[in-house]
Design a binder for these strands. Structure first.
Lengths: 150, 150
DNA sequence: TAATATTGCATAGCATGCTATGCAAGTGTA
DNA sequence: TACACTTGCATAGCATGCTATGCAATATTA
């Protein structure tokens, strides 16, 4: 079957952008449901992932590891501080900079948060074979690296 | 190579959810850049797609074709009305309902908007072969349909 | 028909993300 | 040292999306 696309035709279901957007909201919805019992929200997740690896870092260092803009990070950190997930201290060697530390509350939910995310990922990809799952991740990596530079 | 994932390990780059979220923001960024000269923004795009097919519909009918919540649609329609993209009239046979109509301004940018979206999609997938592009869309469809029901 | 339930839409309040901008603290240079 | 430049972060203002809630109009049921 041959499908002709004219400038008078646009099919959402054939649009990568439309599908990506929809899929992202489904992932966020599922992850939010699973992590809300832990007292965190989805936007905090990438930040927590990095701080669980290493805290006591500057906002700049954190920013280098996370794919959001600086203002987005600063705002999310504000909410995390409000929610007692992080504390900010002055950097003794640079008064402009800060050091960001996890609270015990945030440290304590690490294993459960990992599990929540892995469960969401596993369920989302449950309809794909192991080989298809690898392909899917690979394709996404390639699309992302192509788009980052543009 | 065998990779062991423990509960003390979580790699963003292996997380479908993380990649999907990042990719969605890259798509939105690129589309926004291309359509802003047309006087529209990305959230309006799915709504316009449907209204270009058929306008004079109720909000409920529109909602059935778009994958967002009712409140999101109502808010986006408010901004579109503010920006002179749509007009709302009363439904003569049901005073609760409304009919949503495109303005001439919105009708006139259809071809350019289609082209913008198709260019974004094409560029995003430029690093994939035709067969890989088909696979990618197919995998996304399957992931989405699996997640919608959960 | 009167009471109740449902429907169609609007609004409030919030999180996430962006761009643009401001500003104090550091760095470099004349 | 004085000046300009850069850096690290905060804030304003906006769009997008969500859940929860309100409310008038319609539909249903007793």
């Amino acid at each position: 079957m041959q499908v002709y696309l004219s400038d008078m035709d646009f099919t959402k279901e054939d649009s990568a952008g439309y599908l990506v957007n929809h899929m992202a909201r489904l992932f966020a919805r599922d992850l939010q449901q699973r992590i809300s019992p832990l007292g965190i929200v989805v936007g905090q997740f990438p930040i927590l992932l990095e701080l669980w690896q290493k805290d006591g870092v500057s906002q700049k260092e954190l920013l280098g590891k996370i794919d959001v803009e600086q203002a987005t990070l600063a705002n999310t950190l504000n909410r995390m501080e409000r929610d007692s997930l992080v504390k900010r201290t002055k950097n003794p060697t640079d008064a402009r900079a800060q050091l960001i530390w996890l609270t015990e509350k945030a440290s304590g939910i690490r294993a459960e948060a990992y599990e929540a995310a892995q469960t969401v990922n596993a369920q989302a990809l449950a309809g794909l074979s192991a080989e298809e799952q690898r392909q899917f991740l690979d394709l996404m990596h390639r699309v992302i690296s192509g788009m980052r530079q543009e």
